[in-house]
Structure formats: structure tokens, C-alpha cells
Design a binder for these strands. Structure first.
Lengths: 138, 138
DNA sequence: TTACCTCTCATACTAAAGTACCAAAATCAA
DNA sequence: TTGATTTTGGTACTTTAGTATGAGAGGTAA
């Protein structure tokens, strides 16, 4: 909002400056009206494009939020979440174990706990539910 | 691209028209130069905003496209794809079999074929690859 | 220190998942 | 109708996944 006010203030100032330029060129005849208008047109066209780009750039609030509140609400621990992420990448328990330098048994424990906490019967279902709960990026 | 050319052509025409308007107002003195410039500024500002909105509106090419070309390229049949969709929902082979009114053996066959065609070792990996290939909605 | 939680690991078992190989219907294009 | 492809199904087997249970190590708050 503050930026918007600032930008429009700048626009007004620019307009006033151009008025003076217009009067000057009109009186002196140094600059043709065509050129002045063309310059004004180009400048404001660019300003229009720029402002809109700034505005729309922020707009995509299409929540790519990898929320952490629900993770705590579900009682999912750090390690468990880490395992969950690896599962969603399509890794096997063995591969995850090697990746995290712990035994496959431990992974199985984490997975079992995850399934309970996510109320899922399978790891594939856990992936789905986790994404629905926005604790995993789609 | 064609539209871009069209728009800029229109812009040029508009500029030329404004030149004439400028000359006319200059000669007749009916319209002050300040007003003319202000009008030009506003018009082109709006044009700039409009064009940019059009451009950026298409930009979010966040293809929610459930593409079908790659499905054929990978040699995935209709039934196999149907099974793939159910897998991505987190369903077990047995559940898919009941859903599609066919035996679990058949599902296993389809899944095996899918894994080969998607170059995956596990169903979870198949889900990931399928989404990367944009044959499954994220 | 006790109580509690997280992380770790193991064993033993059940249940899915996946592979390999084969083969009979069904579908479809030539 | 022939030939190719898809869909279906089975058996037998191997491999992951997942459950149940128990337990030790380390950190933390009461």
C-alpha cells in the first residue's frame, strides 16, 4: 500500500514536470509537440507495464506454503517428517535408511508412527493425505 | 506473438492519431497542450497496464494439464493409466481390483507394466515420475 | 532424580507389493 | 479372417512394507 501511494505520487510529480516541459517546448518551439507526446506516451506506457508487473508479481498467493503448524498438531516429530519427505520422493525404506545413516528398522518405526499419525494404511496414502494437509509440497 | 505484433501496430496507429490531434489542438488552440499530454499519459498508462495484465495472465503456465501425449509416448494403455490414477490416490492393489471389478492378479500385471514403462522401482516412485512427466495432476 | 519424549535398533511375524512366465479371451485395425 | 494389442487371469516365488513388542541412549522439563 505504501509503495502504491509512493508510486502514484511520483506519477503526479512526473505529470507536473511534463506540463512544464510541454509549456517550455510550446513557448520556445525547440521541441515539436509530436516528440513530446511520443515521449510522454512511451514513458507512461513503460510505467504502466512496470507497476502492473509489480502488482501481479505478488498476486500469485497460491499458497505453496509448506505449513508447519499442522505438522506439530499431528504430533509428527522432526525425524518422522524427514522420513515422510523421502517417502514422497518414492524412496524405499532401505534407501532412506542409507540416506539418513540409520538402520532400516528405525525407518520402519518412523513409517509406522507416520501412518498412525496421518491415519493412513499405506505409504502412498500417507503421501496423499500429507499433501492434502499441506505439509508436503504438491 | 501475433497478438503482440497486432497490439504494437495498434499502438503506433494510436500514436499517429494523437499526433494529428496534437497538431490540430496546437493550430486551433482549442485544447491546451497540458490536457493533451495528460490524456496521452493516462491512455498509454492504461494501455501499459492492460497489455501487461494480458501477458502475465497467460504467464502462469502452471499447466494443470493432464497431458495425454506422453502417455501414448510411454506406451501406457488406458487400463494401465486408470490403475496409475488409483495408485496415486493411495489405494492398494486389492482396493483397485475391487474398484475396477477385476482380479488383484490383473492389477499386479498392470502395475508391473507401469513400473517398467515409467522406469520406476516402486509405486511411490511411479507416482513421482508420473507427476514430473505431467501425466498426473500434482 | 523422576518422568517424558525422541530417536534409535532388534526380532518375529503378517501382509502387501512386485517379478517371472504363461496363457486365454477380447478388441481392433488391416 | 488374420495378426497385433489390450485386457484379463493364474501360479509360484522374492522382495518390501508394515505391525507388534520390547528396549536402550540421550535430552528436557518438573
Amino acid at each position: 500500500m505504501k509503495k502504491t501511494i509512493f508510486v502514484f505520487s511520483a506519477l503526479i510529480v512526473a505529470l507536473l514536470a511534463l506540463f512544464q516541459l510541454g509549456k517550455y517546448s510550446y513557448l520556445s518551439g525547440d521541441i515539436s509537440i509530436e516528440v513530446a507526446i511520443a515521449v510522454v506516451a512511451i514513458i507512461f506506457f513503460i510505467i504502466g507495464v512496470y507497476i502492473n508487473k509489480k502488482t501481479l508479481a505478488k498476486k500469485p498467493t497460491t499458497l505453496p506454503t509448506i505449513d508447519s503448524k499442522k505438522i506439530n498438531e499431528l504430533g509428527i516429530s522432526n525425524r518422522e517428517y524427514e522420513v515422510l519427505v523421502h517417502i514422497s520422493k518414492g524412496m524405499s525404506n532401505k534407501e532412506i535408511a542409507e540416506e539418513l545413516f540409520i538402520s532400516e528398522s528405525t525407518i520402519k518405526t518412523h513409517v509406522s508412527n507416520l501412518l498412525v499419525k496421518l491415519d493412513a494404511k499405506r505409504r502412498t496414502q500417507a503421501i496423499q493425505k500429507a499433501k492434502d494437509l499441506e505439509i508436503l509440497s504438491p
